[in-house]
Amino acid sequence: MTYLLEASGLSAGYGRATILDGIACALPAGAITALLGRNGAGKSTLIKTLIGLLPPRAGAIRFAGHEIAGLPPWRIARLGIGYVPEERRIFTDLTVAENLMVGARAPDDGQPGWTTAQIFALFPNLAERAHASARQISGGEQQMLAIARTLMGNPRLLLLDEPSEGLAPVIVDEMIAMLARLRDGGITMLVAEQNLAFAGRLADHALIIETGQVTWTGTMAALQAAPEIAALRLGV
């Protein structure tokens, strides 16, 4: 198996608190990996560390041949990592189309990248509301916009933090189908999730982190076949 991203000995935290304590993990290329763990286990912290919003205190992160630990977020993003944060963090002072404009960046290799038209084809709801203020669109549409905005930067790896949170089941179904299509188009993903059922429907691989360390890795199928692991590690 080839890995798009490999991290080792990764430590990070806020203030005096240590959240990640020497994490090692690897993301298989072209697959969706679920990042599982309880509230406060360090899922969001790991994702923020990978995108560079939280500088690691120790450790190495290798992404597509580049060492990215300690780089500023904009450099990491330009190397091809897209970040979809938990709180979505769309720019509510901007319109939907302007949000896409912020994310837009041509691929470095000169290949054709995502166009606004393609994005609107993938997210028809957003097309209808292109010139609406991002403040006024629904929660589901905001989540789609957060993903679409990141796609405009043509990432090879997408980091999604709790994408299903607060969404109606029918929207969640749409999103699973859409993310699976993106994976089939060659985008690698790391999806932090609390919802094991959601992760099970989407992911190929799983990582479980507990109190800042990876305590289990394997395929999603293996995790689902052994409910006692989830019961023990995730408390579900």
Binding site: G52, P73, W74, A77, P85, L94, E98, R105
Partner: peptide
């Protein structure tokens, strides 16, 4: 547009590669 976006959330703008 980037300036307005950064005024609202500059970390997110950075995470988008600006």
């Amino acid at each position: 547009v980037l300036v307005r976006a950064a005024t609202q959330d500059r970390d997110m703008v950075a995470a988008l590669g600006v």
